[in-house]
């Protein structure tokens, strides 16, 4: 039955080559930690992706309770943390995952750097990677405000002040982030939208490009 459904779709869309390409491609020995223990450094990219998936899933559950509104943001996080079953676990995963993903992404960047894997023909994927890095930092910055406790508020205030000191465009950045004259109700709404819609959208697009390029070019050879 399943086979029949699959063949029905395949007959129309010719999907076999797509997944065969992903599933069957060869993974060479020098990146396989089962053969060379030191090859675990090649796992950092995959692990970053793994934690990114955890971030997206835990974030989706957080939005079931979080209220992006100045009067209720803190109260909703507080409620989630202390009253909702497993709320503390879900929030904990998102909180610690945010740090872990930065660590793993950094280690992945170092692996690519020290193995010289950014060189011809992989220049574009390195640049895509750096853009991803920027988006990840943006996610960290915007997410930090959302619990709306003092730590969140003051860190964001200082962060925006720093952005405002940039010559020429500083004020524009400040207005864009704050959405008004102060860090307040508008800022929460903006940071929420950025954190939950804009930046993850950009992130997914960049990751898709990253993976397509890796598939096209293959992993870099042994040193």
């Amino acid at each position: 039955m399943l086979k029949a459904v699959y063949e029905w779709i395949d007959g129309r869309l010719d999907i076999t080559p797509m997944w065969r390409d992903v599933a069957d491609h060869e993974v060479p020995e020098h990146v396989n930690p089962a053969h060379h223990f030191s090859a675990f450094v090649y796992c950092f990219g995959g692990l970053t992706f793994f934690i990114t998936v955890i971030q997206i899933l835990s974030g989706m559950f957080l939005t079931m309770y979080y209220v992006p509104d100045i009067a209720n943001a803190y109260a909703s996080v507080d409620y989630l943390q202390h009253k909702v079953a497993f709320g503390v676990i879900v929030r904990g995963m998102h909180h610690w995952g945010a740090s872990l993903v930065i660590v793993l992404m950094f280690l992945h960047t170092l692996r690519v750097f020290f193995t010289g894997s950014y060189k011809n023909p992989r220049e574009m994927n390195w640049v895509i990677g750096m853009l991803t890095f920027g988006v990840m930092l943006g996610l960290g910055f915007t997410g930090y405000l959302l619990p709306w406790d003092n730590k969140a508020y003051f860190a964001t205030k200082v962060g925006i002040e720093i952005a405002a000191s940039v010559p020429f465009i500083g004020e524009t950045i400040q207005n864009f982030l704050q959405g008004g004259d102060i860090v307040g109700a508008e800022t929460i709404a903006r940071f929420f939208a950025l954190h939950v819609f804009f930046l993850p959208g950009v992130l997914l697009a960049l990751l898709a490009a990253h993976f397509i390029l890796i598939r096209k070019q293959g992993i870099s050879g042994p040193l």
């Binding site: 803190y74 676990i89 929030r91 904990g92 995963m93 709306w148 406790d149 003092n150 730590k151 508020y153």
Partner: peptide
């Protein structure tokens, strides 16, 4: 990761 999550709840201070 899960050991970390279970041992240390995410911090939350007082309202801004």
């Amino acid at each position: 990761f899960l050991v970390l999550v279970v041992m240390h709840p995410a911090p939350l201070g007082y309202p801004a």
